[in-house]
Design a protein around this nucleic acid. Structure first.
Lengths: 198, 198
DNA sequence: CGATTGTTTCAAAATCTTTTGAAAGTTATG
DNA sequence: CATAACTTTCAAAAGATTTTGAAACAATCG
């Protein structure tokens, strides 16, 4: 056994259990699997890298689940595989740079999601224009109604598009902030406080 | 039939189908049911309120599903029940103030989530302090190890706590912005652009 | 090379979520 | 107050996701 000794590795401390529980929930809330959060958290609080077997035992998971989850975490760049001197098995360590981690995930996932939405809204606007053309060849009474409806929808979809773009900007701001550090963001947020004496 | 006439109400236009589809996905991504998004979107694009029956037909859902989903949407304040002159059945209309809608949801949901997390992290820190006390009565060799581990965890959980608090601030900023309008936010985001000539 | 140890895969099982539709409940109206 | 018109509820069915564990695979060691 290469690990120093073993106050840990038998069972989780209360602090570890609690944190892996919350992180699991948070992460689930964010659309990942709960176990991804739990495993990451245990690694994050461990002084040295852990093996798949350690994790299996500490969290009572099946070996398969641990392997798959670690694979996913690695794909998200949130856990790293680590060599331990003279050990045969693989060991794993958590990415500890929280901010970098988050930005990586946001960049892949939320960005994609929002870009898809933006495209779809744009396409919907285009389809309304086609509708307008077609409306020309409809009986006058109906035409009125169609055109009014087209205008309403253009306006509302326009609003959705605008909002999505604002979201994208916010995301970009967070991401570029993240590349350096969280400070500008923090400054903006803190700046808001004093200007408003109750 | 009270509704004006009926270029709609038979089937969705392509623009409506597309938008309700994307919104459904987005909303699902944000942890709600897809049908909540689809129904809201159809209402949002409709010039006049629709009945549960209309929605059932337009989206091919069961009456039960429509009723429950409308109930949820109403609880989130995202859809309103509306009286239509001389109609017996209920009609529904979408909240069209996107920004208000979002802030309401964020305020209830994300805020709760983050507050729970913050409390849990704080409690975990407290539990580490208790651990430290207990460590006093351990054999010297183990004590060292425990204390080191406690310190490491305090630091890391501290980081998580800090991040959560930053998240809370960001959320608060978004929310208070939302109460008025999105402008300050937009200004901040746009402000970032010029200062950085490539 | 085997043999041993550890890792990945994947179909089946378990679990969790959503949807259905028929029955019970409500409310308006004659 | 009985009937008709809608709505809500809820247990069961369908559907989706996650987990399991045993078998296939890979790598290291003697």
């Amino acid at each position: 056994m290469s690990q120093v000794s073993g106050v840990h590795k038998q069972a989780l401390w209360p602090s570890e259990a609690a944190v892996s529980d919350v992180v699991g929930r948070l992460i689930e809330f964010w659309g990942f699997k709960r176990n991804m959060g739990r495993i990451w958290a245990v690694l994050y609080l461990s002084p040295d890298p852990l093996s798949a077997e350690d994790l299996r035992r500490l969290l009572s998971l099946s070996s398969g689940a641990v392997s798959m989850t670690l694979g996913e975490l690695a794909r998200w760049g949130v856990v790293r595989r680590v060599w331990v001197q003279g050990e045969r098995k693989d060991f794993f360590a958590a990415e500890v740079q929280l901010w970098r981690m988050i930005s990586r995930v946001f960049n892949e996932r939320e960005k994609m999601e929002i870009d898809t939405a933006i495209e779809a809204f744009e396409e919907a606007l285009a389809s309304l224009d086609r509708m307008k053309t077609q409306a020309a060849s409809a009986p006058a009474k109906e035409r009125q109604e169609i055109l009014a409806r087209v205008e309403l929808q253009k306006e509302r979809i326009g609003k959705l598009l605008e909002l999505s773009k604002l979201g994208k900007k916010l995301l970009d701001a967070l991401l570029s902030t993240a590349k350096v550090d969280a400070e500008p963001l923090a400054r903006f947020l803190l700046g808001r406080q004093h200007s408003h004496p109750s």
